[in-house]
Structure formats: C-alpha cells, structure tokens
C-alpha cells in the first residue's frame, strides 16, 4: 500500500539551487578565462586553495575554538545525546559529535568537513528555553546541514570567490607599491582588479542566496526527520523572540558565527535580505506551515 507523502517535493527550491550554482559557475568560468590570459596569478590560486582547504579541513576545530563550544560526552549530557542518537537512528544518519556553548543566546550550529568529523552544537540558552519537541526540531535542522554537507558545498561554492578577494587585495597593494612606475602591465592590472571586484561582488550575493536556500532545505529536512513542522515553527519563534530581548552586547559576541547558526544573531538595524545568510523568519515559517497543512491533510 502506498501512502501519499505529506512532505512532497520542493521543486522550486531545487531549481533555485541549481540556477544559483549554474550562475556561480558561469561567473567563475569567465573569471578563470580572464585569469588564464595573464601569468603570475597561479601562485595566488594555489595560495587561496591552501587557505580555503585549511579552513575547510579544520572547520570543526576552528568553529569550536571561536565559539567556545565544548564537546560533551553522553555522561555529561545524557538527554541531549539520547535525542541526537534517536534522531540519527530514525533518519539513518551517522551520529555527529555533540557540543554545548555556554551562552544565554538560544542558538545552534553544525560544522565539520564531513559526516564523521561533524559537530552539532547548542547553546545553554537553547537548552533552557526550548521544550523537548522544539529542541528536537532544531537538532533535526542541524543534522540536515550535516547530511547535506553544507560546509563542503559552501566551501566549494566560495573557493573562486576567495581567490577573487585575494587578487583584489593583492592588485591594490601591488599598484600602490609600484607607485608611478609605469609599465605595460598597468592596464592589465586594472582589468584584473575590476574583474576580481565584479566576480567577488556577484559571487558574494550568489553564495548568500545559496546559503539561504540551504537553510530552507535544512528546515524541510528537520520537518521530515521529526515529522513535526510545527515544532520547528515554535522553536524559530522562540529563538527570534529571545534574540530581541537579549542585550546587544551579548549578540555581537556571536555575530561572527552567523553563517553556522540556526538563526543569525543581528544587532539592531538589520541588514538587507540580499546580504543575509539566512532567509527571513516569516518566509521560513510560511514554508513550514505549508508542510504542516499537507501533513494534516488540509489542501
């Protein structure tokens, strides 16, 4: 007997991800074509590759260090570990390591270069403010990030963007040092600088868009794994509500980690959506509500 799947498919989301990826590829290919015309940028490519690889390879350690997250054993956090184990078992996913951050800001993140080295971290504020179902929903969201290898996807997507950034900085410095010393490479230098700037700008926006789509995908994943879209809605509302109440000083402490968080911490005067790593909370909730309606057989 086949059952109608309540979670259905989100073809629109898949199409948008593919489109963003394709646009990035076009921008990068054009950039590489320009770069390949001029020698001397190979070492920058290698340098950037090394930089990005190190950042990717040590993503778990880097983020753990900068966030102050502490890995916890099943003895130290038995409830949390049981929750993660059971969700992993239900979704047939490998169990990531579990960490806790001592912070009143309710939030969570996932990191790690692969499923084996993955870490799911939650703040003490999250543990204290959310109930069992809501906490499960947030953990489900982070587990989906791990499953979707979002660290790897974003790393690959932003590699040439990083190269462009390096070249931009490099050509700025080199032309400043060269001063008025005119040579025939000057025109090429300006071209490279402008191309890098353009590539960096466009790819930055595209990567941000991709990151937002991955958030939607993680929300969907959480709803599917836990079978409870409403729990994630409640959790998102609680987290964003608590964010507004927490003093801004506390928020600025964690702002650097935004891309990893379930909801980014922003101090007052929120920036434009276009530059955000996360979609607006209303949009995330609207999508989850649609899932809940189909699950309950409405529409």
């Amino acid at each position: 007997m086949t059952q109608r799947k309540w979670y259905g498919k989100d073809t629109g989301l898949s199409v948008r991800m593919l489109l963003t990826g394709a646009l990035l590829m076009i921008v990068y290919l054009a950039f590489l074509t320009i770069l390949s015309r001029y020698v001397g940028y190979t070492f920058l490519l290698i340098f950037a590759a090394l930089f990005v690889f190190i950042q990717y390879y040590f993503s778990d350690k880097l983020v753990l260090m900068s966030s102050g997250a502490k890995l916890v054993t099943p003895q130290e956090a038995p409830q949390l570990h049981t929750m993660v184990e059971r969700l992993c078992s239900i979704a047939d996913l490998p169990k990531p390591r579990v960490a806790v951050i001592n912070s009143a800001v309710p939030n969570a993140f996932a990191t790690g270069r692969n499923q084996k080295s993955a870490v799911v971290a939650v703040t003490t504020g999250l543990l204290n403010n959310l109930n069992l179902q809501e906490l499960e929903a947030v953990v489900g969201h982070e587990l989906t990030h791990v499953k979707n290898r979002d660290v790897l996807v974003i790393t690959i997507a932003s590699f040439l963007s990083t190269v462009a950034w390096f070249i931009m900085r490099f050509s700025l410095y080199s032309s400043a040092f060269r001063g008025g010393n005119r040579n025939k490479g000057a025109g090429a230098g300006i071209l490279i600088f402008l191309a890098s700037l353009l590539v960096w700008l466009i790819s930055y926006l595209l990567i941000r868009a991709l990151s937002r789509y991955r958030e939607f995908a993680a929300d969907r994943g959480s709803a599917i794994i836990t079978g409870n879209p409403s729990a994630l809605i409640a959790a998102l509302l609680k987290i964003s509500g608590a964010m507004e109440r927490v003093p801004t000083k506390d928020l600025r402490d964690v702002e650097g980690l935004n891309a990893f968080f379930i909801i980014p911490a922003l101090s007052a005067g929120s920036i434009m959506n276009l530059f955000s790593t996360h979609p607006p909370i209303e949009k995330r909730i609207a999508r989850l509500e649609a899932m809940e309606r189909t699950r309950e057989g409405f529409r």
Binding site: Y7, M17, A91, T144, R149, V153, R214, A217, I224, I225
Partner: peptide, 8 residues
Amino acid sequence: VLLGRTKP
C-alpha cells in the same frame, strides 16, 4: 546532497 533534499 547537491540540492539538499531529505527523504525519510
């Protein structure tokens, strides 16, 4: 993985 799709 590429499209971030989750199936139970």
